[in-house]
């Protein structure tokens, strides 16, 4: 897929930040495609993941997609907030695709391979987290967003606070309660095994 035109992406981001809701619909697939491509590339490059930083990847997407000279700081924050959502979607989609490939692809001969089992469990956990976040968003959208930005977007507490327009203290509190709530849901009421 050819790289999206930075001028076009920048204009869409600016239009959206000025209230043009339709601009977001056009912006999302462009950013999504780029994030997905970068995520796959990075994952291949750095298997163990210890040095991987989502913020670095989103920053890379930002530099490739946006003409920074035309964009003010608050628009950069908007971009990071949107990118967190798209990153979540990209990773969840990739996990789902792998799941259906394995189910349909007769991977049985390697099913005892520890790496594959770990891989499948990770995908399942990621998909379960995604669903738990949807459940949380039904009654507390902001907490769900805080987790999305911190975990999927790799944003710091301070960056998350800025993007959401709330205090750092609020993000700390949201993050703490959201994690307890999510973990309880995912572990099915067994804290000792968490």
């Amino acid at each position: 897929m050819p790289k999206p035109n930075p001028h076009e992406v920048t204009q869409l981001l600016l239009a959206w930040s000025e209230g043009d809701k339709a601009a977001m619909d056009k912006l999302m697939p462009l950013v999504y495609g780029e994030l997905r491509r970068l995520a796959k590339q990075h994952m291949r490059r750095e298997r163990a993941g210890h040095t991987l930083q989502t913020t670095a990847l989103i920053h890379e997407a930002y530099l490739r997609l946006i003409d920074a000279s035309q964009v003010r700081l608050e628009n950069r924050r908007h971009f990071f907030a949107v990118a967190s959502r798209l990153m979540r979607q990209a990773l969840v989609d990739l996990a789902r695709e792998r799941g259906s490939q394995k189910r349909g692809g007769g991977a049985e001969h390697v099913s005892l391979d520890a790496a594959l089992m770990v891989s499948e469990q990770r995908d399942d956990e990621l998909l379960a987290l995604d669903e738990a976040l949807l459940a949380l968003a039904e009654f507390d959208a902001r907490k769900s967003q805080v987790v999305e930005m911190r975990f999927f977007g790799g944003l710091s507490v301070e960056e998350t606070a800025e993007a959401l327009g709330v205090s750092v203290e609020t993000v700390h509190r949201d993050w703490r309660l959201a994690r307890s709530w999510l973990l309880r849901l995912l572990r099915g009421g067994k804290p000792d095994e968490a």
């Binding site: 990075h42 993941g49 990847l57 990153m87 990739l94 996990a95 990621l126 975990f151 994690r179 572990r187």
Partner: peptide
């Protein structure tokens, strides 16, 4: 769950996902 949640989703999603390459 508060104590257990301290280490939950502490990394970032991309690093987590990179650990599961097939």
């Amino acid at each position: 769950y508060d104590g257990a949640a301290e280490s939950f989703i502490q990394g970032n999603a991309l690093a987590f996902e990179a650990g599961r390459l097939d």
